[in-house]
Structures are given as structure tokens and as C-alpha cells.
Amino acid sequence: MALVSRTTLLNRLRYKHLLLIRLLDERRNLHRVAEAMNISQPAATRMLREIEITFDSELFTRDAKGVAPTRLGAVLVSFAHNALTRLDRCAEELQRYRTGDGGELAVGAIMGAAPDLVAQAVIEMKQDRPLLRIRLMGETSDQLLDLLSRSQIDMAIARFSSALQHNEFDFEPLGNERMIAVVRRGHALVGQSGIELSRLLEEWPWLLQPVETPARQALEKELEQRGLVSPRDVVECGSIFAALQLVKRSDAILVMAESVVRDYLDFGVLTRLPITLGQALAPFGILTRRGERLSEAGHQFAAVVRAHAASCAAPTVLRHGDAASDGDSTLNSRA
């Protein structure tokens, strides 16, 4: 198979070709794709053939059930989805500016950073640019980086979730967060001293993030290093809201960023257990697609987040009840 140069792609691969590829992936039938594009099926077939000639390779297999992408076709499908998403968002942003709108900025943030750093940045941005439409999504790092790779968000305030993602994204560290273990008010563990982690793992239910997340992977690695087994009674929950509702209504132990549960602690809804967490947290920061420029609003938002992160970089002062006893167990985790 001959190599396809960048110039060849720019000269031959058109918007209609990208649309055809995306629709083929979504509908898996040439007849339905032709109807969606308002062209005849022979014309759709010829267009697909033109693309395959450009790449000198079969991109989709055909049989009685329809079409399916080959391994090379799957690469082009991913590119088509990303390229069309960016084009659509660019067109929408241009239209908003024409009509006096302030454009749009989509930001994803791990919940440990969102309550303080990101929320304050959003408030400041809206004060300066009231017509800017900001979409804020709070997910886990692995989910946010998937959204970022598919151009569904402009930037993420998160952590790397796998070893090779530094090849795909640029990363600027901002800070860290403190992980704590909490239980509901009136829990049998409240007020106990000398709590052993091994007993907690064996005797109590736990609320943990899904195993795909960096937080869960780091927790499991720490347990392995300490010669401890994973808790036997586990509910995996990727929703922060659902996890908080569950811990308030059950005997489960929840591990969460201190900034997320701070209000619950202040109002006495939850109580912190004397277990020190997060002593070796990997930093979270601004993640953007490598080699891609941010919009003007994106640059401004990054600058605001950066400034607030710098102002919060002073050593953390422990509040009443935060300090753990000398006999407490220590876990290293990250969100």
C-alpha cells in the first residue's frame, strides 16, 4: 500500500467524503447513507470507491448485512468524527459572533478541582464575558480525556489516566487535592480510635470509583504494595451525586476529594475517618489536544484557572478534626 501524503489528503478528501465516512459508521448501510445525504446509492458507492482509491486500500467490508470498517477504515472513521465535530463547532461559534452572541467554551473538570478552582474561574469569566456560553462537565479523568480526544470539550482540568496519553495531550500542572475517607453521621466507626485499615477492608462496605479511573487504580496499587486485599463489599459509582446520596443512607465508607465533601462535613452530614489519604497524589492540571490552538475564550479561561491555582498554592492549614493520629493508616490515591 502506497503512503498517502498530507498534500494528497488535503487535495482529495472533501467535507462530503468525511460525512460519508461518518454516516457509514453510524448507519452501516449504503442505501440509508445515500438517503441521508440526498444522493443515489450508486453515487454513494462511487464516492466510497474514490476514498478507497486515495488510500489504496479497502476501508469498509461489504456483505448482505451491510458495511463495516476495516482496521484502516476505523482510523479514518475516528478522524472523520473528530474533524466534523470541530467543523460544526467552528460554524456554530462563527454564527454566534455574527448574531452578537459571545461564543461557547466547553470545559471538563474532575470534581476534586471543580468546587473551588474551576467554579471560581467560571464565575470570573462570566463577569468579564456575560454572553459567553460555558458548558461545564464534571467527570472522572478517564471520561474527560475521552471527551477531549473526541473534541467534545475544549480542555480538561484532570489527570492523565494512562501512560501514553502524554503523546496525545499537552499538560500543565495546576495543583493537588486531598483525598479523605468519610462515613455518615452516627456511623458505628465515628469516634473510634486505632482503626486498622485491614479491618475496614474486611468488615465494612466501600463506595469506590470504577476500576478504569486513576483513583481506583492508584488505590488498588497502594493496597497491593501494603500487602492488603481489596475490599470484598464494594459498590462502584462513577457519579459524585449518587455516591454522596449512597454514603448518607448506608454504612459504606466513601473515599473522595476533601473539597467535594467539605460542605457535608461542615454541616455534620458526613464525618471524616482518621485515615490519611493522598500523600503522593499526582497533580491535576490543564489538558489540551497536542498541537491544537485554544480559542480566545479558552486562552482566557486557562489564564484565569492558572492565576487562581497559583493563589491557592500556599501550604494547606489543617482545620479542626482534620489531623490524623500517629497510629492512623495511610493510603496513596489520586482522582
Rank of each mutant, 00 (worst) to 15 (best):
T8S: 04
K16I: 09
L19V: 12
R22H: 05
R27D: 02
P42G: 04
P42S: 06
P42M: 08
A44H: 11
A44Q: 06
D56N: 12
D63F: 09
A68R: 12
R71H: 09
N82Q: 07
L84S: 03
L84R: 05
D88H: 12
A91R: 15
A91D: 14
R96N: 08
R98W: 06
T99P: 01
G112I: 07
G112Q: 06
A119P: 07
A119E: 15
A121Q: 06
I123L: 00
I123W: 02
K126I: 05
R129A: 08
P130E: 00
I134V: 15
M137E: 13
G138M: 05
E139M: 09
T140P: 12
T140Y: 09
Q143V: 12
Q143Y: 09
L145N: 12
L148Q: 07
D154T: 05
M155R: 12
A156Q: 05
A158K: 03
S162C: 07
S162Q: 11
A163H: 13
Q165H: 05
N167T: 10
V182M: 03
G186E: 00
W204N: 04
L208P: 01
R216T: 12
R216S: 14
L219V: 02
E220F: 02
K221R: 15
R232M: 03
V235T: 12
G238R: 01
G238P: 07
S239I: 01
R249Y: 03
R249H: 09
I253P: 14
V255G: 15
V255C: 14
M256A: 12
E258A: 11
V261Q: 00
Y264W: 10
V269L: 14
R272S: 10
R272I: 07
R290H: 10
S295V: 04
S295K: 05
E296W: 11
G298L: 02
F301Q: 00
A303H: 09
A310K: 11
A313N: 11
T316H: 14
G321E: 12
A324L: 02
D328K: 00
T330V: 15
T330Q: 07
L331M: 10
A335N: 08
